[in-house]
Write a protein that binds this DNA or RNA. Structure first.
Lengths: 168, 168
DNA sequence: ATTAGTAGCATGAATATTCATGTATGTCCA
DNA sequence: TGGACATACATGAATATTCATGCTACTAAT
């Protein structure tokens, strides 16, 4: 990982009761990830708001953009939502003529979600804004190697998923 | 919270997972950050559930652990919540005897939040679990330099915050 | 073919969050 | 000092999410 060249090592592990002159959370990986995600996403959410599109709606459309015919559970997983939440979100999106529910020919339990043409129109505009915004973010952080960071994150996501059964 | 295991995993069933090599979101920084944060946090949330502590409650307690006497708005910001959400969350936490509201002597608009002794007990156990879990996560990703990654994330958070007014 | 078990989605009641305000206090400055 | 404006928190109605569960359809084993 090219990313990690800053120096390093040991330290964080065996320090005895590290009387935090700092807040715990400011050195807590889970918090830093959540906060970084939040502050960066929040900025784009302004774009969504101006477009009159809710954040979860955008996530569904963005997912469908590269992966048409997703299932309800597949979308829930991709959008980091629970399945009942997704079912109800899709109710609204169907109502707003952004997506359609279609039966799966092979498995009648499955519902396939497809964008309507209106959905496609909306997502295409938003995709353009998203790419533009991503470039702005990266421009604001010139020391960050985007490719390396994305690779790192994908690695965390993939390995974490496979290791799911750990921890008691 | 079991969500992430629902679909994409068993896969063998109904020929889902067209996992197209080209989903937009799989190369979208904001999504990768959100997903990485989500999958890693989800694992710890299992610990919280077993302890009978809700995620936002944990976040408030963890924040107060290193920073006593926070204000309502300060906590909302730290916990990535809106202020009315925090007010109501604190209502519940006061009810459950985890925190107290105290008036600020200098500014009577301000409410200072302080942990009760029960709150302290709870958070101390959770902090230990959180640190243990963080070590487990890092152990699972041996190629990641934790110090460098944290530094990177703090940088993103800090610079992003200062650049807040960007984007039209 | 029958049965037991599981996967995918929907639903409803309980709970939580948000949006738009309301109220009180503090600050600025003419 | 007065008035306009800003800040901190609370509140309530509208909306969204969650938890538990129901229902149907598929799968595997007998």
């Amino acid at each position: 990982m090219v990313l990690a060249t800053i120096s390093t090592q040991g330290a964080a592990t065996a320090a005895p009761a590290p009387v935090s002159a700092q807040r715990f959370i400011d050195d807590y990986l889970l918090y830093l990830l959540a906060r970084a995600s939040h502050v960066i996403s929040t900025e784009f959410h302004g774009v969504l708001r101006r477009a009159g599109v809710q954040v979860p709606v955008w996530r569904v459309l963005a997912t469908l953009a590269g992966s048409p015919g997703e299932t309800v559970s597949g979308l829930a997983d991709a959008c980091l939502l629970q399945q009942p939440t997704m079912t109800k979100l899709l109710d609204r999106m169907v109502r707003d003529n952004l997506v359609k529910r279609l039966p799966d020919p092979k498995d009648r339990r499955v519902v396939r979600i497809q964008m309507t043409s209106r959905g496609e129109t909306v997502v295409n505009e938003l995709l353009a804004s998203a790419k533009k915004h991503e470039q702005e973010v990266l421009a604001r952080h010139p020391d960050i190697d985007a490719v390396a960071l994305k690779t790192l994150l994908r690695g965390m996501i993939g390995r974490q998923r496979r290791g799911k059964r750990a921890l008691g």
